[in-house]
Write a protein that binds this DNA or RNA. Structure first.
Length: 285
DNA sequence: ACGCGTGCCTGTTGGC
DNA sequence: TGCCAACAGGCACGCG
C-alpha cells in the first residue's frame, strides 16, 4: 500500500515520463474514481505538466496552459491534477495504442513536447483511489488538504512535541493525516519498533525524549525506504512497474508470531486503532 | 472537540 | 481438493 516513500518514488519515476507533456482527451472508466470536488476531466485538455511531486500520500501534477492551445482553454484553469493511490492504485505511462486493462479506472491521452503521443493510465483493483482536477480555490474547499498535517521529513528534531497531546494510542495518532502526513500502517509499526515505544501507549504520555526518538526513527525509516524505492507487499509498483525493496528489512510489519530480530522473543500481534499491529513486548516499552 | 466503530472494495489466504 | 469466511487498510462518515 503506497505510503510516503512509495508515493515519493512514484513521483520521481513518473516525472521524466510526463514532464512537458500536454493533456488531450481523458476517459473515466469508473465514476467513483473522480473526487466529488473535481473539475471535469475534459478541463485538462491543453494543460501542460510542469512538475510532479508529493505531499503526504498525495501525488500532485502542477499544470499550466500550453502556449499552442491559447484561446481554447476555459477559465478557471485546472492548475493541479491530484491522485490518491490509496491501497492498490497504480499510475504509469504507455504508448498511444495501449488498451485499458481489467482494473483501469482512468486513461489520459498525452502529447509529448516532440509531438508524439502517449497515454497515462490509472489502474486500481480495489477502486479506493481518487483523482481530483483542481485549482487553488477547490483545494481550499477540500478539508483533507486544508487539514493535512506537516511533512515528517521537514519537521525539526523536537517537531513531534505538541502534536501528540491526546489520549488515544500513539499509533492511531501517527496514522492520523491531520497530525502528520504520509504515515500508514507499515511505517507506523516500523518506526514505533525502532523508537522502542509500544503502539498502544497514550500519545500524550510520551516525554520529550521519546518524541524526539520517535521522529528520528520515522525520518530514518522513511529516508531508507525512499533509498530502496519503497516497500512492495503485493500491489505496489513505481511508474516503471518496478517493485521496491524495503519490505526485506521489516522488523515487525507482517511478522506477528515470528521472532524479534533484535531480542529473539516472539513478536506480538494485536489491533490498535482498528489496524493489524505487530510489536515486540520486550523491546518496546 | 475528540475518538471510536463501520463501510467501502476485490484479490488472496487459511481453515475445515 | 474445494469452498467460503476472514483479512488486507486509508479515509469518509455517523455516533456517543
Amino acid at each position: 500500500m503506497p505510503e510516503l516513500p512509495e508515493v515519493e518514488t512514484v513521483a520521481r519515476t513518473l516525472l521524466p515520463h510526463v514532464a512537458g507533456c500536454v493533456f488531450g482527451h481523458a476517459t473515466l472508466l469508473k465514476e467513483s474514481t473522480l473526487h466529488p470536488l473535481s473539475m471535469p476531466l475534459e478541463s485538462l485538455a491543453g494543460m501542460r505538466v510542469d512538475h510532479v511531486w508529493r505531499r503526504g500520500k498525495l501525488l500532485l501534477f502542477n499544470l499550466s496552459p500550453d502556449e499552442s492551445c491559447d484561446g481554447s482553454i476555459r477559465e478557471p484553469l485546472p492548475e493541479n491534477l491530484i491522485v490518491h493511490l490509496r491501497m492498490t492504485g497504480r499510475i504509469f505511462t504507455s504508448d498511444a495504442n495501449q488498451e485499458q486493462g481489467k482494473h483501469t479506472r482512468c486513461v489520459f491521452d498525452l502529447k509529448e513536447p516532440g509531438g508524439s503521443l502517449k497515454r497515462l493510465f490509472f489502474d486500481d483493483t480495489r477502486t479506493f483511489g481518487k483523482i481530483l482536477v483542481a485549482n487553488p480555490q477547490i483545494l481550499q474547499q477540500w478539508p483533507f488538504w486544508r487539514e493535512l498535517g506537516p511533512e515528517p521529513l521537514e519537521l525539526p528534531p523536537n517537531g513531534l512535541e505538541g502534536l501528540l497531546k491526546g489520549k488515544r494510542a500513539i499509533k492511531a495518532a501517527l496514522l492520523d493525516q491531520k497530525v502528520i502526513a504520509g504515515i500508514g500502517n507499515i511505517y507506523a509499526d516500523e518506526a514505533l519498533f525502532q523508537a522502542g515505544i509500544r503502539p498502544m501507549r497514550e500519545s500524550g504520555s510520551l516525554d520529550k525524549k521519546e518524541c524526539a526518538r520517535l521522529l528520528s526513527a520515522l525520518k530514518d525509516i522513511l529516508l531508507r525506504s525512499i533509498d530502496q524505492c519503497g516497500s512492495s507487499i503485493r500491489d505496489y509498483r513505481d511508474a516503471n512497474g518496478n517493485v521496491g525493496a524495503f519490505q526485506n528489512t521489516f522488523f515487525v510489519y507482517g511478522r506477528g508470531g515470528e521472532n524479534c530480530r533484535k531480542c529473539g522473543e516472539p513478536l506480538q500481534k494485536c489491533r490498535v486503532g482498528g489496524r493489524a499491529t505487530v510489536f515486540c513486548g520486550n523491546c518496546q516499552k
